[in-house]
């Protein structure tokens, strides 16, 4: 057996900050975020794309970071759960609704759901899309939660979607 596989240089803009690293081609984006950058808010529940706990935004689109290779994110933008709060540490409406509506119990699936829901809210806000309960559950069914029974998660996202459709002002809680 030969030694370690050859490493490749990559540059990824993570949460608005450029990071250059040499990585093995087989390194997943989730391992890169967690182990190279210390961004442990991105959780790994299955490493096989089934649970969605590792969901991040890749160039603004939700992606499974466990099934994405770090090299595939070379030259692109990645946003993780750590990017959601503003410079003063204030929560987004979504985060605030998750807390208030108890849309989490153990908290492990929470970052993935927040990133998925952030994408949905952005579509509603920027593209004017509206989501029926059915359309929303279809989208949210990409991720798994084992604790809550999903009810408060759906209600939290619906609350924020309602807030945005009622008024376009005030993104922060």
């Amino acid at each position: 057996m030969n030694g370690q596989p050859e490493k490749h240089p990559i540059v990824i803009a993570v949460n608005g900050e450029k990071h250059g690293e040499y990585v093995e081609p087989r390194m997943s984006l989730s391992d890169f975020l967690r182990d190279k950058l210390g961004l442990t808010g991105t959780h790994i529940g299955c490493h096989e794309g089934a649970c969605g706990a590792c969901t991040v935004l890749l160039d603004g689109v939700s992606a499974r970071s466990c099934l994405t290779l770090a090299t595939q994110a070379d030259g692109r933008q990645v946003d993780t759960v750590e990017s959601l709060v503003d410079d003063d540490g204030r929560l987004t409406l979504l985060q605030e609704a998750f807390v208030r509506r108890f849309a989490l119990q153990c908290g492990f699936c929470t970052p993935g759901f927040l990133m998925l829901a952030t994408e949905i809210v952005k579509e509603a806000q920027e593209e004017g899309r509206s989501f029926s309960r059915e359309a929303l559950t279809e989208r949210l069914s990409a991720n798994l939660c084992r604790c809550t029974g999903y009810v408060p998660i759906v209600e939290a996202v619906e609350e924020v979607l309602r807030t945005h459709s009622d008024s376009n002002g005030g993104e922060r809680a």
């Binding site: 967690r34 961004l39 442990t40 808010g41 991105t42 959780h43 790994i44 993780t80 759960v81 750590e82 959601l84 709060v85 540490g89 929560l91 985060q95 998750f98 807390v99 208030r100 108890f102 989490l104 119990q105 908290g107 492990f108 929470t110 970052p111 927040l114």
Partner: peptide
């Protein structure tokens, strides 16, 4: 309803693998 929720929604959980 949760003492830890504010920390967790920020990605501030500290699970085993972290």
């Amino acid at each position: 309803v949760s003492l830890n929720a504010d920390r967790w929604v920020r990605g501030g959980g500290r699970y085993l693998a972290d």
